[in-house]
Design a protein around this nucleic acid. Structure first.
Length: 437
DNA sequence: TCTGGGGTCCTAGGACCC
DNA sequence: TCTGGGGTCCTAGGACCC
């Protein structure tokens, strides 16, 4: 198999990576000043630590920890459910600030950005570290959260830089100091190298990022696939990953899953969950003017095995009524009444942009046009009064179960003054960023 | 990390064609 | 019945990320 040749930018790049510190927890502390200096943890709604403030981390709270454990090591911990909409607003503000310094910004995730600073020293009268410092100061002053920054020759190296010192770190890794940082870094900590690949590399005696970086090209090309060859170049200071400015709008797939507690084997309830996922996915697809041609359904058993099926849609669509029949058929194939399930999920795939319905000669055109009108109205009402003001009858079952949505406890919910008069993200028609947890 | 939710990209291998 | 070489499209599944 012939792999594509890699594009290596001949000119040395200067890439900055900005990573917010304990983002969710920091947003909560910025909104609720009374929480400043206190150990704050978000993730109440799902029982494990999604983000922990540095005060909580200092007492031994770690990400992914069960909440009862967190309480044990830190009895005065303040537990909050995650409030993604608010964090998204902070995120938007953060990217706006970064763009004041350079237009070449990639919104990598809700709390991370890459910036291509190549050639920008002149306009800021000084070294790249001064730009980074000003970005850092501005974000802290205007948003009340801190960020860590790394600057180096490639994205992978910039990431290593931003992780090197947290919180509030600023790490520049020039070409002649790369080896110093890589020598101390275990291979599995490299962005893009996970448990599997690091286990493989260890078999060849490669345990540090430096040992990987100084590996012979011959070896890398023989044993590793394209993504790892790219990382190898990046570690050596040869930039292959460009900073991508375009904001994300073209999805390859849209998925929705939801776990329910306790697990269930109730056919109607489980199908209702599935329908609700379908509705949510379709809402998102319509918001992005996308239609799907493939539908993947899966039921997750209590033992975490997924049982699924993939179905082809007879035309591109983003309307649940057109899909729900097929959903039922697929569900019947997969569902086993004697099995306990913990979650359901659907994936809309084979996406194509467009909003107009494609007709075939068999279609009842007036009926479809009526359906589109109804959904337009549904989307409009939902955008004004909130999601699921209107929903399919078959997903009503989900309401009958007691839903354990985390309430805000005794912390009053207040909007930061920053966002006064600002509508929620969805009302602006902006995509909701997928959140890092 | 005993396990939430949302994504991307790559590769191998089968089906099919000339 | 056996024998080539080459291409394309599609899908499943792995691996990884936040």
């Amino acid at each position: 198999m012939i792999s594509q040749p890699l594009t290596i930018h001949s000119w040395p790049r200067a890439i900055m990576h900005i990573d917010a510190d304990a983002f969710f927890a920091s947003c909560e502390q910025a909104i609720h000043p009374e929480l400043k200096g206190m150990p704050v943890v978000t993730g109440k709604e799902r029982g494990i630590v999604a983000a922990a403030s540095y005060e909580a981390k200092a007492k031994g709270v770690e990400r992914g920890m069960r909440l009862f454990e967190a309480k044990k090591v830190c009895p005065d911990v303040v537990l909050l459910p995650s409030d993604y909409e608010t964090y998204s607003l902070f995120s938007i503000r953060m990217f706006e600030i970064v763009r004041r310094f350079s237009p070449d910004v990639e919104e990598y995730s809700i709390d991370e950005a890459f910036v291509d600073l190549t050639g920008m020293r002149r306009s800021f009268h000084g070294h790249y570290s001064h730009i980074a410092q000003r970005v850092q100061e501005t974000i802290t002053r205007e948003l009340g959260i801190s960020v860590s920054i790394g600057v180096s020759l490639s994205k992978v190296l910039a990431k290593i830089g931003s992780k090197h010192k947290k919180p509030g770190g600023l790490t520049i890794i020039p070409g002649n100091e790369i080896h110093i940082y890589l020598a101390k870094l275990p291979v599995e900590k490299i962005w893009g190298i996970g448990a599997n690949t690091s286990a493989f590399l260890r078999k060849f005696g490669i345990t540090t990022a430096l040992e990987f970086a100084v590996g012979k090209e011959e070896f890398i090309k023989t044993y590793l696939s394209k993504p790892y060859q790219e990382i190898w170049h990046e570690l050596n200071g040869r930039s292959v990953y460009p900073v991508i400015r375009e904001s994300k709008s073209d999805y390859k797939s849209i998925s929705k899953t939801k776990t329910f507690t306790p697990p269930s084997k109730d056919e109607e309830f489980i199908f209702a969950q599935l329908t609700k996922n379908l509705e949510n996915a379709c809402i998102k697809a319509r918001r992005h003017h996308l239609m799907a041609s493939r539908l993947i359904i899966f039921l997750r058993r209590q033992d975490f095995r997924d049982m699924g099926i993939e179905l082809k849609l007879n035309r591109y669509t983003a309307y649940p009524v057109e899909i729900v029949g097929l959903l039922k058929d697929g569900f019947r194939e997969v569902y086993d009444p004697d099995t306990l399930y913990r979650s359901t999920g659907i994936v809309l795939a084979g996406l194509q942009s467009g909003t107009s319905v494609q007709y075939t000669i068999f279609d009842d055109v007036p009926r479809i046009e009526k359906m589109v009108k109804i959904y337009n109205a549904v989307d409009e009402i939902s955008s004004r009064f909130g999601k699921h003001t209107i929903q399919h009858a078959s997903s009503l079952q989900t309401k009958l179960q007691v839903q354990h949505e985390g309430d805000r406890g005794d912390i009053p919910v207040r909007k930061n003054e920053l966002f006064k008069g600002e509508n929620r993200r969805q009302r602006l028609g902006l995509p909701v960023l997928s959140a890092k947890v």
